[in-house]
């Protein structure tokens, strides 16, 4: 996908977006609500025609080559798209009937726990049950590419595990899986590649590890970690950073100390056991008792919030 732009009434929802989703991998499109995730995915599914830019799925154009692509692409829509009056089992069988060699419906239904509500009409299903049915419908045709728009929204933890397991299996079978999510743990546990999208653009891309180890302020920064602690206000941040162990690239300290709030501190740098000992020793020398010390690697959530901002939208 290159330079995808989709405007609604002149307002760009997707604004020059590039991304690639390789076969045999899970690609997550991560972003806050309204970032343009669903629009992007729908351009790939052929449901929307891009204002400009190029989208290719399996080398084909989703709109003009739709007939050739439909048998090879599985889709799970955010709003489900399931006929409400029919029974769950019927819906799955019906979608399977569209393919020459669908997956075994009973086996798939058992895998995703659909069989337990196969005789219930879609209208009466819970959110998680609908999601599982929609996922089953997306993969029943043995697609080579699967688009999942917020697959585990509204699911209980057991359902989520079942879904994740199926997604991993698809990946192992060489399927290109593209999913949108705003669930950090989903992206962290499942995705090989993460594209963080905001305001219709990709603002960060990489493997989960790459994203976690790159701090936004210090793109070249090595192993990033943070030690957060509470102590008396107004400690000497520069002296603390200088006292921390390790060498930076140009001989200066690799540590930085900040105080996001009075009495609350964040030390960022190569977090290892020595670093923690150095911090507590430094505090002991000054007769400062830390109220709490937490050592934490950055989570994808930190990265995400750093990138997209912490304000509500």
């Amino acid at each position: 996908m290159r330079g995808l732009v989709k405007r609604y009434g002149g307002r760009p929802v997707v604004d020059g977006l590039d991304l690639v989703a390789p076969a045999g991998a899970v690609t997550a499109v991560l972003g806050p609500n309204g970032a343009g995730k669903t629009t992007t995915i729908e351009c790939c599914e052929g449901l929307r025609t891009p204002t400009s830019g190029t989208v290719r799925v399996l080398g084909l154009d989703p709109v003009s080559d739709a007939r050739a692509l439909r048998p090879r692409v599985g889709v799970m829509l955010q709003d489900g798209g399931l006929p409400t009056g029919a029974r769950a089992g019927e819906v799955l069988r019906h979608v399977a009937a569209m393919y020459a060699a669908p997956r075994d419906v009973d086996e798939l239904a058992a895998r995703l726990g659909v069989e337990s509500f196969a005789r219930t009409t879609v209208r009466r299903l819970s959110g998680g049950q609908r999601q599982r049915l929609a996922l089953a419908a997306a993969v029943v045709g043995r697609p080579e590419v699967v688009f999942l728009d917020e697959p585990s929204a509204g699911m209980d933890p057991q359902s989520r595990q079942a879904v994740w397991e199926l997604v991993r299996e698809l990946r192992a079978d060489g399927v290109a899986v593209v999913l949108t999510t705003h669930l950090m743990d989903e992206a962290e546990d499942l995705a090989d590649h993460v594209h963080v999208v905001d305001h219709g653009r990709v603002i960060a891309s990489g493997t989960v590890r790459e994203l976690l180890t790159t701090t936004p302020d210090d793109e070249a920064g090595g192993v990033a970690g943070a030690v957060r602690f509470d102590a008396a206000p107004d400690i000497d941040l520069a002296a603390l950073a200088a006292a921390m162990p390790g060498d930076g690239t140009d001989g200066s300290s690799p540590w930085s100390a900040t105080s996001p709030a009075p009495g609350s501190y964040v030390l960022t740098g190569p977090t290892d056991p020595r670093a923690l000992a150095a911090l507590t020793a430094w505090l002991a020398d000054r007769d400062l008792l830390a109220g709490s010390i937490t050592v934490g690697r950055r989570t994808l959530e930190d990265v995400f919030l750093d990138l997209t901002g912490r304000h509500l939208r």
Binding site: R70, G80, M98, A137
Partner: peptide, 12 residues
Amino acid sequence: NGVLRLLATTPL
């Protein structure tokens, strides 16, 4: 309910 959109993405 999105049924038309979903079915439009299947070979139908």
